[in-house]
C-alpha cells in the first residue's frame, strides 16, 4: 500500500514525533508507515484522514490499483 503521509507531514512542517503524538502511536510506527514497511489498520487510517482533513483514499492507495489505469487490471469487474 502506498501513502502520502510523509508529503502531507512535510507540507505542515511536522516532525514524525509530532505526527505520532497526534495519531496516538509511536514514532517508529509513523516511520514504518511512511517507508511502506507497515500498513496501518483501518481505524488508524481513519485517524490520519481526520487529522489531515482528507479522505482515506487521498492518503492511502492500493499499489496494485496503480496498474489498473494502465490497462493491466486483472481484477474481475
Amino acid at each position: 500500500m502506498k501513502n502520502r503521509l510523509k508529503v502531507l507531514r512535510a507540507e505542515r512542517d511536522w516532525t514524525q514525533a509530532q505526527l505520532a503524538d497526534a495519531l496516538d502511536v509511536s514514532r517508529q510506527t509513523v516511520n514504518a508507515i511512511e517507508t511502506g514497511k507497515f500498513d496501518p489498520s483501518l481505524p488508524l487510517a481513519f485517524r490520519a484522514a481526520r487529522l489531515f482533513g482528507m479522505r482515506i483514499e487521498e492518503i492511502f492507495s492500493d499499489e496494485d490499483r496503480g496498474g489498473a489505469t494502465d490497462g493491466n487490471n486483472n481484477n474481475p469487474r
Binding site: 505526527l19 497526534a22 496516538d24 509511536s26
Partner: peptide
C-alpha cells in the same frame, strides 16, 4: 494542529 496538542504525549506518557 489542535488535535496534535490534545494528544501530545498521550501515547508516550501512557507507555512510560
Amino acid at each position: 494542529m489542535s488535535q496534535h496538542k490534545r494528544a501530545e504525549n498521550g501515547y508516550r506518557s501512557r507507555m512510560r
